[in-house]
């Protein structure tokens, strides 16, 4: 470790300059992109000029009233919480068995659990929505929740696997040798040790559900829209509404996601946010 310099010298190679330059360019443009939306959402009129003519916050209150955002937010929260609770309840025990045990047909079952994460949501979303409409579940919160469970349960299984593998199996054996039944092992040993993992995976499922567009879009009715879907409708119906109010809504959505993610980052490594499939074919 002594070889590592405490700080990178400024006399880095041209390749290094190139790489850092590209990163800087990415961030500058990203900042411009976000900034333009924020400025637009706060501006009065903004046409062919560097900055808007004046500033106002009325687009926010307007968007709040016009789009019925309170209801949308309540729906979003309701859907997300239901999806989190159900997918954790279903996913954690399954993940435990898949991580710990080997049994006939395990590979096939793992594949079945992996597929929903690998498939574009549209491919199964359309037939699923058709099916849900047939049985009368689509168009309501229950249909949205059911559709969102499809990627969420496998996602919980995948994110919980490393947490479960971290726990030394001899600890469970030790508990059994102390006389604990399977239920007691789960309650007394596994649940407290897995709590951080369950928390992390719940937050990640929450982030994904709030951001999940396609499945919600396909199954939601007028009163079961989540924030992303409401946003999409407001934007694709552009011309009717002022663009600034859409911008205001988008800023609200992003702030909400940002809060969720900042909370998430306290519990999880950033790579877990994206590592959907912790695949390990050698296992």
């Amino acid at each position: 470790m002594a070889v590592d310099r405490p700080r990178r010298r400024l006399t880095a190679s041209p390749a290094a300059w190139l790489v850092w330059g590209a990163v800087a360019l990415f961030f500058v443009n990203l900042a411009g992109l976000i900034g333009s939306v924020v400025v637009s959402s706060l501006g009065t009129r903004w046409f062919d000029s560097w900055l808007p003519m004046g500033y106002t916050t009325r687009w926010y209150s307007w968007a709040w009233r016009e789009f019925g955002l309170l209801d949308v937010l309540v729906t979003t929260l309701e859907v997300s919480l239901l999806v989190i609770v159900i997918s954790v309840a279903l996913g954690v025990p399954a993940s435990y068995v898949l991580a710990r045990r080997s049994f006939p047909g395990k590979r096939a079952l793992t594949m079945v659990f992996l597929l929903p994460v690998l498939m574009p949501p549209i491919t199964y979303g359309i037939p699923l929505a058709t099916m849900l409409y047939k049985v009368g579940l689509a168009g309501h919160t229950s249909g949205v929740v059911l559709a969102n469970l499809v990627p969420s349960v496998p996602f919980v299984i995948l994110t919980m696997t490393p947490f479960i593998e971290q726990i030394d199996p001899t600890i469970e054996r030790a508990a059994r040798m102390c006389g604990a039944t399977t239920a007691q092992v789960f309650r007394g040993i596994l649940a407290p040790l897995l709590l951080p993992g369950i928390l992390a995976s719940s937050i990640l499922v929450g982030v994904r559900t709030v951001g999940m567009f396609e499945l919600t879009f396909l199954t939601a009715g007028p009163d079961s829209q989540t924030l992303v879907v409401a946003l999409y409708y407001s934007m694709s119906a552009a011309g009717i509404r002022a663009q600034q109010s859409v911008d205001a809504m988008a800023v609200m959505y992003t702030s909400m996601m940002l809060v969720l993610l900042v909370v998430a980052l306290r519990f999880v490594n950033p790579t877990q946010l994206v590592a959907q499939a912790t695949d390990d074919p050698d296992r």
Partner: peptide, 28 residues
């Protein structure tokens, strides 16, 4: 195993990391 009433000491100790020494010993 839980109905055989045997005690076991493991190679890597297998102590319950979230329980104090006292509660580890009291577990059984």
């Amino acid at each position: 195993p839980q109905r055989r009433g045997f005690g076991m000491v493991f190679q890597n100790y297998a102590l319950f990391p979230h329980l104090s020494v006292r509660r580890n010993v009291a577990f059984g």
